[in-house]
């Protein structure tokens, strides 16, 4: 069957799609929690204040079954109380701030099989993006990963988060330009 075409998320998704605790994948107080953060930039190098990012990943043991509860609702008053603080759903969704910044707090993904290099899958939506874009966040530049191995070093670096003093991991998304992020397609 022919697919339904994509259309932009537009500028007005902010009251509908992001929810409280959308970036808090890791259970509260979990000792292995890591913060991943960055900015989204356009082709002029300006921050993108109206992007929506989604993250999907394996759990720490490499499992890809996921769990419900990423957008948990209060069945008494319909509000969004955030996650239950226990179950790891594998999914996060955050909008960029007015300065283009975003952050999530998660548990490191495990390897999904022998010899596999763990990564987080990222989906980027924004005003001006008529089709969303997929990319990945790796934590190390490893020749064992076929995608990383297929890219020249400069482009490969756009997929690898850099550890910052203080413990966060930084990765910026450049939609266009000299430092353009590697975006992916699947068949």
């Amino acid at each position: 069957m022919k697919p339904t075409p994509s259309q932009t998320v537009g500028p007005f998704f902010g009251y509908a799609l992001p929810q409280a605790g959308g970036g808090d994948l890791a259970p509260a107080g979990h000792p292995d929690a890591v913060v991943i953060r960055g900015f989204v930039y356009d082709g002029a190098g300006d921050p993108v204040p109206d992007a929506l990012l989604e993250f999907w990943q394996a759990d720490p043991s490499g499992g890809l079954d996921g769990q419900p509860g990423s957008m948990r609702r209060d069945h008494v008053n319909g509000s969004f109380p955030g996650r239950d603080g226990v179950r790891f759903t594998g999914f996060a969704r955050v909008a960029t701030d007015a300065d283009g910044h975003w952050a999530i707090r998660t548990l490191p993904p495990g390897a999904t099989g022998p010899g596999r290099v763990p990564y987080i899958s990222v989906c980027v939506f924004a005003r001006g993006l008529l089709r969303h874009l997929y990319t990945r966040i790796y934590f190390e530049d490893s020749a064992a990963d076929p995608l990383l191995a297929s890219l020249e070093p400069g482009r490969r670096a756009t997929l690898v988060a850099v550890a910052e003093p203080g413990g966060a991991h930084r990765i910026d998304i450049h939609l266009q330009g000299d430092r353009e992020t590697v975006f992916l397609e699947f068949r």
Partner: peptide, 26 residues
């Protein structure tokens, strides 16, 4: 709004994927 926001580089076709072939559940 597309002018500065679409990638200029071709998308990379990714033969080996497992995470992207599964997805979140609700």
């Amino acid at each position: 709004s597309t002018v500065l926001r679409h990638p200029h580089q071709p998308l990379i076709l990714t033969e080996q994927a497992d995470t992207e072939l599964r997805g979140p559940v609700f």
